[in-house]
Amino acid sequence: MSAGTVRRTDLRYRIALNLRAVVGRSYPRIIGANREPSWIFFEGLLPLLGIAAYVFIYQSFGARALEAAAGDPAAQAAIKANTNALVASVVLGGTMVAFWLNVLWSMASQLYWEKEIGNLQLYMMAPMNRMALLGGMAVGGMFMTSVRAVSTLVAGIVVFGVVFQVADPLMLLAVFFVALTALYGLGMMFASLYLLWGREAWNLSALMEEPIFFSSGFYFPVGGLFRVPGWGPVVAILGSFVPATFGLDALRQLTLSRTAFGGQLWIFDVKTELYILVFMAVLFLILARYSLRYLELLAKREGKLTSRHQ
């Protein structure tokens, strides 16, 4: 065996190589963001306005309900508590929207985008594992998106006066990071699927915005869907294949308490949702690995790996 072959099969060398690939691919997202300060305005601050609109809807409903309940202090107190909980739901949903959009546009569509601009063949020729490449994209994407997510949270607390009651911060962190891992695992799986597709990929990502915001309950507790007779539960069950559904439901329970909304709008308890999220994270990462390997082979065989603008 030649010295070169021995070196390439050495585990330490391979781990170091793949870690370097993770760092290398996340670098442009983390450093590139710093070099382009306008990005913070466009990607961090402007999108807050859309979330503010949803906040104002609940406040508008709340104001009209308060008017109707004039002279009944108990009813007014209940309306105020419910409105605050719904506004908080929107703020949490807004943070998750940031991550979902990043998964769609900077993970799922990224290999397709790299193909379009001619970088994909360079990645394919490089000696690292493709999962390291996707891992680097995910790490960089999470960092970039955190700016927007944090600004949404801060705006929710400072501007809209949202009150969060965190009783179990460790569980909150666990749910958050497991949900993110599952989400980005899903994004990695989509990334490989998108390799085969042409412009359908872009349109599929566009199609997974509003319908997923709706079916996963980004702006309302998803349990509300189960209260709609007929189609509601079907949509909610379909939506729960996206990890954000359980992630958001658990985060809302952990920050608003289980008694919010009279306790009638939650799907499962937090622990059950955490287990489901762990299962999803593992499943999506495994599926991503296999689908990437298979679809890379298929794309090479069909000659689509470097074909642009199709």
């Binding site: 949803y54 809807i57 609940y58 508008s60 409903f61 709340g62 009209r64 309900a65 109707a68 209940a78 309306i79 419910n82 719904l86 566009a206 199609l207 915005e209 509003e210 319908p211 915001f213 709706f214 079916s215 309950g217 980004f218 702006y219 309302f220 507790p221 509300g224 869907l225 209260r227 709609v228 909304f261 009279g262 009638q264 709008l265």
Partner: peptide
């Protein structure tokens, strides 16, 4: 059609959830 209709349904559900927990309908709003 799916994208805008889903966008409208987000609002429908926001209204529905508010109506469920507040036990109050507001068809004009």
């Amino acid at each position: 059609v799916v994208k805008p209709v889903a966008g409208a349904f987000i609002l429908v559900l926001m209204y529905t959830v508010f109506a469920i927990i507040g036990s109050r309908q507001d068809p004009a709003a």
